[in-house]
C-alpha cells in the first residue's frame, strides 16, 4: 500500500507503439479508406499474435477446464530467452545472418518454454486435478507472479530494446497504407503455425488422443489413452506457441520486459472466450476479431467520446468485450457454454 513500483502491468502507452504512430500518421492527410485499411492491417497483425496465445489457453481449458493464468507469462519468458540468445549470438558470431540468428533464438525460446510448460503442469497443476475448483486457479495466479518475479531477478526491471532482425522499414503496398516486413512475417508465420496445429489435432494419433481426453478423461484412459501424457503434451504445445508469439510480440513493438506477458495474456484469454473457449477455430477467430476491434477502437475512441477518452484507454476494449461476451453470449462465437446452469 505504500507507493510501490507498478508491478506486472505495462504502461499502456509504452507498449503500444504500433497502433499509435501509424494511425496518427494516417490521420494527418489520408483518406477514410486508407485509414480503414491501415487499421485493419494493424488489427490483423496483433490479432494473429493474440490468436497464437489464445490457442494455448483454449487447448488447456478444453482438456482440463483450467484457465492457465500463467500462460501470458510463458510468452514473456519466450521473448526474453530469445533476446538473451540473440544477444549472446551477436557477441559470439557477429557476422551471422540475421535470419539464422532469429531462427536459433526462436528455437531456443521454444525449447525453454516447452520445458517450462511441462514443469508447470508436472509440479503444480497435476497435483490439483481433483482439488476444489478455486485451488488450481489460485495456483495458476501464483505461478504467473512467480514467473514474473524470476524474470525480474534475471533480466531486471528495465525495458529492453528488442533487436529487429527482420526489417521494420514500412512498405507501402497501397498509397498511404503501411506494413512492415515484420508484420508480414507475423501474419504468415502465425497462419502457418495455426494450420500446423489444426493438422496436428485433427490428423495425427496424438491429436486424436487429445480430442478424446478433452471429451472425457476417464473414458479416454479406459480406451488406453495415457491422459497424463496427453495433458503434459498439451501444455508443451501451448507453451511452444506462446514462445513464438512472445518473439513476434516483442519484435513488433521492439521492446521486451518482465511484465510484458500480462496484457497480451489477458487479451488472448478474452479472444479465447470470444471465440468460444475450448474451440481451436474459435480461438483463432476470436484473436483476429479482438485485434481488429482493438485497433479500430483505439483509432476512433477519441472521436466517439468527443475527445473525452483517448487511446490510452485502448486496453479497456478487451475487458469490455470479455464482459459483454460472458454476459450476453457466454458460449462465445463458436463454442461451448460456460455459465453455470443446472
Amino acid at each position: 500500500m505504500t507507493p510501490r513500483t507498478v508491478v506486472g502491468v505495462m504502461p499502456a502507452r509504452l507498449m503500444d507503439p504500433t497502433a499509435a504512430p501509424d494511425w496518427r500518421l494516417v490521420r494527418l492527410g489520408k483518406g477514410i479508406m486508407e485509414t480503414l485499411i491501415q487499421q485493419l492491417i494493424n488489427g490483423l497483425v496483433i490479432g494473429s499474435v493474440y490468436a497464437l496465445i489464445a490457442l494455448g489457453y483454449t487447448m488447456v481449458y478444453g482438456i482440463l477446464g483450467l484457465i492457465n493464468f500463467a500462460h501470458g507469462d510463458v510468452l514473456m519468458v519466450g521473448a526474453l530467452v530469445a533476446l538473451q540468445t540473440m544477444t549472446f549470438l551477436m557477441g559470439m558470431a557477429p557476422g551471422m545472418s540475421p535470419l539464422v540468428m532469429l531462427s536459433i533464438a526462436l528455437l531456443v525460446a521454444i525449447v525453454v518454454c516447452m520445458l517450462l510448460g511441462f514443469t508447470m503442469e508436472r509440479l503444480a497443476y497435476r497435483r490439483l486435478r481433483n482439488a476444489p475448483r478455486l485451488a488450481p486457479l489460485i495456483t495458476a495466479i501464483g505461478v504467473s507472479f512467480l514467473l514474473q518475479t524470476i524474470a525480474m531477478i534475471i533480466w531486471g526491471r528495465n525495458y529492453h530494446t528488442y533487436p529487429q532482425l527482420i526489417s521494420t522499414t514500412p512498405l507501402q503496398p497501397i498509397e498511404g497504407v503501411f506494413i512492415t516486413p515484420v508484420q508480414i512475417t507475423i501474419i504468415f508465420g502465425s497462419a502457418a503455425l495455426m494450420i500446423g496445429l489444426l493438422l496436428l489435432v485433427n490428423r495425427t494419433k496424438i491429436g486424436r488422443a487429445m480430442r478424446a481426453t478433452a471429451e472425457n478423461h476417464r473414458v479416454a484412459s479406459l480406451m488406453g489413452v495415457d491422459t497424463n501424457a496427453v495433458i503434459a503434451f498439451t501444455f508443451v504445445i501451448g507453451a511452444g506457441l506462446a514462445a513464438v508469439a512472445g518473439v513476434m510480440f516483442a519484435s513488433n513493438y521492439g521492446i521486451a520486459h518482465y511484465g510484458m506477458g500480462f496484457m497480451p495474456g489477458l487479451k488472448a484469454f478474452t479472444a479465447a472466450v470470444l471465440g468460444g473457449i475450448g474451440n481451436l477455430g474459435g480461438a483463432m477467430l476470436g484473436g483476429i476479431v479482438l485485434g481488429v476491434v482493438e485497433s479500430f477502437g483505439a483509432g476512433y475512441i477519441e472521436n466517439l467520446t468527443f475527445g473525452f477518452l483517448n487511446s490510452s484507454y485502448q486496453d479497456i476494449f478487451a475487458f469490455l468485450i470479455l464482459g459483454l461476451v460472458l454476459i450476453f453470449r457466454p458460449t462465445g462465437l463458436l463454442g461451448e457454454r460456460v455459465s453455470d446452469r443446472a
Binding site: R133, L137, F269, L322, S339
Partner: peptide
C-alpha cells in the same frame, strides 16, 4: 453483470 459466471470466469472479469 457477473452473477451468472462460473468461478474462474468471475475471477478474470
Amino acid at each position: 453483470p457477473v452473477l451468472r459466471l462460473r468461478g474462474d470466469y468471475l475471477a478474470i472479469v
